[in-house]
Amino acid sequence: MSLFKRRRFPVEIILLCVRWYCKYGISYRDLAEMMSESGVAVDPSTIFR
């Protein structure tokens, strides 16, 4: 079973957020702002979950 089953966002977007969060220590709010600049509307609490 896939860990990404029933997720709203594509796997690539999820992995990109996780990579940036782990590598650069970016806050969830900053990460959500960066994603919105890329055209992906995501709430910081969604990234946290």
Results as ranks from 00 to 15, higher is better:
23 K>D: 02
30 D>M: 03
15 L>T: 07
49 R>G: 14
6 R>C: 13
14 I>K: 09
34 M>W: 08
4 F>W: 13
2 S>W: 09
17 C>R: 02
4 F>Y: 15
8 R>P: 02
35 M>Q: 04
33 E>Q: 07
38 S>I: 03
5 K>S: 10
38 S>Y: 04
28 Y>S: 03
39 G>I: 04
12 E>Y: 07
38 S>L: 15
31 L>C: 10
37 E>G: 14
25 G>K: 12
25 G>Y: 01
39 G>M: 09
38 S>M: 15
10 P>Y: 04
32 A>W: 01
12 E>F: 11
9 F>V: 07
34 M>H: 10
22 C>E: 02
32 A>R: 09
20 W>M: 04
38 S>P: 00
5 K>P: 05
44 P>D: 00
23 K>M: 03
18 V>D: 05
23 K>I: 07
48 F>A: 12
43 D>G: 06
29 R>G: 03
45 S>C: 11
17 C>Y: 01
29 R>E: 04
32 A>F: 04
31 L>N: 06
10 P>S: 14
40 V>L: 03
38 S>C: 15
4 F>V: 11
47 I>G: 09
22 C>A: 08
17 C>L: 10
11 V>Y: 12
5 K>N: 13
47 I>P: 11
3 L>R: 15
49 R>N: 13
13 I>E: 08
5 K>C: 09
12 E>I: 12
24 Y>L: 08
3 L>A: 13
24 Y>E: 14
12 E>T: 12
9 F>G: 05
27 S>G: 13
27 S>N: 08
46 T>Y: 13
41 A>S: 14
31 L>V: 03
39 G>K: 08
48 F>D: 02
19 R>I: 00
39 G>S: 09
14 I>C: 11
2 S>G: 13
48 F>T: 01
5 K>R: 14
45 S>I: 06
34 M>N: 11
15 L>Y: 01
42 V>A: 13
